[in-house]
Design a protein around this nucleic acid. Structure first.
Lengths: 195, 195
DNA sequence: ACGTGGCCATACTCATGCGTATGTTGGCTG
DNA sequence: CAGCCAACATACGCATGAGTATGGCCACGT
């Protein structure tokens, strides 16, 4: 992970680094899944050849692990940022989280998550990453419910429900647009968050 | 679709037919996704070679379409069966549907559905099949809500919520077992179905 | 100016997998 | 029992894609 090429000093020269490869890889993952992530195809998309890839990465697996790690840290940072709330503002933070995660997240992010999740079923590293993200998301929302004074068991149950809803809607919206999400979101806000 | 080998009469001979290939294909799809469905691998699993496959199927795409069609009819038949309710028993039917679809559905079925859904993002036929199944599931549960006297808009919203919940939990349970689903299911029953 | 090393291209090998062409077998009918 | 045909097996061509080996280019320091 931390064995990136020996600290290339930031010159004016525009060369590819690991981050650029990972960014391109995420585009492909969003479109074709992790199975569709081929090093030659990725190289062509970046305008270079395989020779460049194997200078930055040990092999294809190295790239996948880097993508997983990037996704994991990004998702954890995002949920922590979205659920940050000043004392007393926990309820608003919950509504904000619903709004952000159920709608604003673009198709690409949903596609990436679905691809990683599906692929993680047959990969130990991927499964660990997904479970880490799930745990963090549940913990963050649970924290908000707890701050509202709910008993631990109910806070855990509601955070799980919230997660299930958001995740389910994310999946269903993939390819469809005629679903009335505003009514559903409102229902969630009034029945899970409040009450 | 209807061009299966010219009506082989049911002899005592045990040979492979399209159904056997599709069944084996579903096992592979559940494990490795549709991308992992390779004809040579499937043939090896069935104890034969490719020569047999290309007698029963035109090509790999023919198999995939057959798998999609089989999954579609099976899912539609299942939701219609599970949501069948005598007049006045609609509420019980809804609870039964939740119970069946949120828990009893084994990991294999969930994996197959997730694989097909993910793959459908980049395939027109797959997308059409998924949308058909979604539409039928939503229609069946919506029918139950309507029978309970709810106005059309609310019946649609609740069926969507129900679907999102079931689907979200199905996804989350894939690889985890420490989640308290009974409490969540009970919450759903009392807040979405009843109230 | 000259070498050094970072970054990439080229050119291979090898494995996998689709599709096809053709050979082979075992049971059925006439 | 001769022949036929369904249901395979075998063997091939071909494309894709991983990984390696090696050569080239250009910026930089000395």
């Amino acid at each position: 992970m931390d064995k990136s090429p020996p600290e290339r000093q930031p010159t004016a020269r525009e060369a590819l680094d690991r981050a650029a490869w990972i960014a391109g890889a995420l585009d492909i993952v969003a479109q074709d899944g992790i199975d569709g992530l081929r090093v030659e195809g990725l190289a062509k998309r970046l305008g270079v050849t395989k020779g460049s890839f194997y200078w930055h990465f040990k092999d294809r697996r190295d790239l996948i692990d880097a993508v997983l790690d990037h996704w994991r840290t990004g998702r954890i940072r995002d949920i922590q940022k979205q659920t940050a709330a000043a004392p007393g503002e926990e309820q608003a933070a919950l509504r904000h989280t619903i709004e952000v995660y159920a709608a604003a997240r673009n198709r690409k992010g949903i596609s990436i998550e679905a691809s990683i999740r599906l692929w993680a079923r047959q990969d130990a590293n991927g499964l660990a990453v997904v479970e880490e993200v799930d745990a963090e998301r549940l913990a963050c929302t649970r924290r908000l419910f707890l701050a509202r004074g709910l008993p631990p068991a109910e806070a855990a149950a509601r955070s799980a429900l919230l997660y299930a809803y958001v995740f389910g809607f994310s999946m269903m919206q993939c390819g469809r647009f005629d679903m009335d999400t505003t009514a559903a979101k409102h229902w969630i806000s009034t029945h899970i968050v409040a009450d």
